[in-house]
Structure formats: structure tokens, C-alpha cells
Amino acid sequence: MRFLCMLLALVCLACERSQDAQPEAFQVGLLTPGSIRDAGWNQSAYEGLLRVREELGAEIAHQVTRTPQQVEEGFRDLAARGFELVFGHGFEFQDAAAKVGREYPDTVFITTSGSTVRPNVSPIVFELEQATYVLGYVGASISRRARLAAVGGVKVPSVASTFMAFEAGARAARSTVRVSVSYIGSWTDVSAAREATLAAIAEGVDVLIHNLNEAAHGFFQAVRESEGVLAFGANRNQNALAPEHVLASATIDIPQALLLVAREVESGSFQPRSIRFGLRDGVIQIEWNEGLLARVPADVKREADALVTRIKEGALEVPRAGF
């Protein structure tokens, strides 16, 4: 009984202290669907949040939200506390952003990927297709048998779109190229990814790309086991995962994207729209494995660089699925 009283006193004291006045800093929040120590999607968003704090002196808050209801709670609470900007890290945050956005017009809600646009709600769209197009071009140019493959996790439009661009790039280099696409039905199944990759290689494929999360380890395992096979990394720089095989990675600089949006919101220049980030913004990049560049003929590398320049200038529109 005595410790219950003490506890009560403790709690009252705590409530007292939590009501301190907030300073007038730029406040930026982030909700992630998973742990920020995943060395991937969520961690990069948190790094972005830290960068926003560093560069803009913002006050930050973060929460892991695993269910739609937690998402709504997180959005609503941060908005009610006067946060100017809240990121929801994934398409699954759109509904809640639109809903809470209506109630809190003074807060800007940004979802990383998605398509919902409202006066204070916008998605960031990463045009990874620009990079996979160029890699497809390179892949088709160097493949000995003109056989390419793409291994995906789950067949969602954003992933299918990166493969579509990969194939279009390959065809632009060599109209006879064959690109086989397979999905393993999971983001995390390492052995399924390995098997799908080995199956493609057994059919004569010698250049591969993927779009997998944790399961990517299986993809690189298979590539490491197969002689004479080249591969591309996706989403992050994965050149070190199989340094003898990975020629380049199509990377997304998520921290940079978050910082660019935060700058807009802080300066008051933010306009609601689908915020597209590609090669031009430096958010999407092609990172080459310097150790393997010798495998790429000089003229192919030159053409690839020229493609990058044309995409940056807007002279070349890379095909992407509408979603």
C-alpha cells in the first residue's frame, strides 16, 4: 500500500514536469513502420531526421508505429503539440495523413512514397526507375547471352515499376535482350531469394538486378556462388556484399530527401504535390563499384554517363508505372 502511495506521488510529480513550456523551435516528427536499427529503410529515415536536427536546428520526435491505429495516434499527437512537419515513412501512412491532415491544417504531413495529395499532405516519390533504366542499359550491353533477370520481393507497383524501367533500358541497348522477372512473395525470405536467383542463373542469365529487403542477402549469396555472373544492388550501396560481382548499385539517399522537404517547409516555400526526387536532386544515384569498372567497355560507360546527363536535364523521360 505504501509503495502505491509513493508511486502515485511520483506520477503526479512526473505529470507536473511534463507540462513545461515548449521552446519555439522548428519541430519535425517521424513515424517509422519498424525498428530504426534495421540497417535499411527505417534507419535511413531516422538518419534523415537527425540530419534535419543538425542542419536546421529542429526539435525532433520519433515513434515506431506498427498498426494503422498507432499511426493515426502518432500523427495526431505530434500535430496537436504543434509540430510543423511530420513524416510517415511508407505508403501505408497515406490514409492517416489525409485524415489527421484535415484536422490539423497547420501541420505538413509527408509520406515517403504514396500518391495522396492534400493541401498539407504530400508524398515523396523516389524515381529509382531513372537509375534502374541506366543499369538495364549497361546490363544488356555487357551480357554475353543477352539474358537478364530481376528478382523482386512482393509484386507491388513500386517494385514492378523499377523492373519495367530496367527492361526498357535493356531494350534501348539491345532489342533482342530477354529479361525474366520473378517475385519470391516475401521481403525477408533469404533462401527463397537465393533459389529464385540460382534458377535464373541456371537458365543462362548472366546479369541480374533485385528489389528485395532483408531477402537481398539470398540474392547476393547466389551471385557469389556463380562464376561469371554480374549483378546490381538496389536501394542502398550493396557493392561490398559481393565485391567480385556487383558492378553498381541504384541508391536512394533518403536522408537527403527528408532534409530537402524539411527545408521547404521551414522556409515556407512548401507546395503540396507529388514530390519527385530523382538523379537530378542527387537523391537517386548510381554508385559504381570501382574495382569492377574494368569489366565495362569504355564506350558503354560513356553511354551510361550520357544517359544520366540526359535524364538529369529532362531530355529523356524514363518510363514508370502510374501508381
Binding site: A61, H62, D77, L78
Partner: peptide, 13 residues
Amino acid sequence: SGAMQRVAAVPAV
């Protein structure tokens, strides 16, 4: 516990 993350910055884990 959600508020504990947002307000007191206690890590999710």
C-alpha cells in the same frame, strides 16, 4: 508507451 517514444524519446525497443 507511444507517447513515451514521442515525448520522452525512449527508444521503441
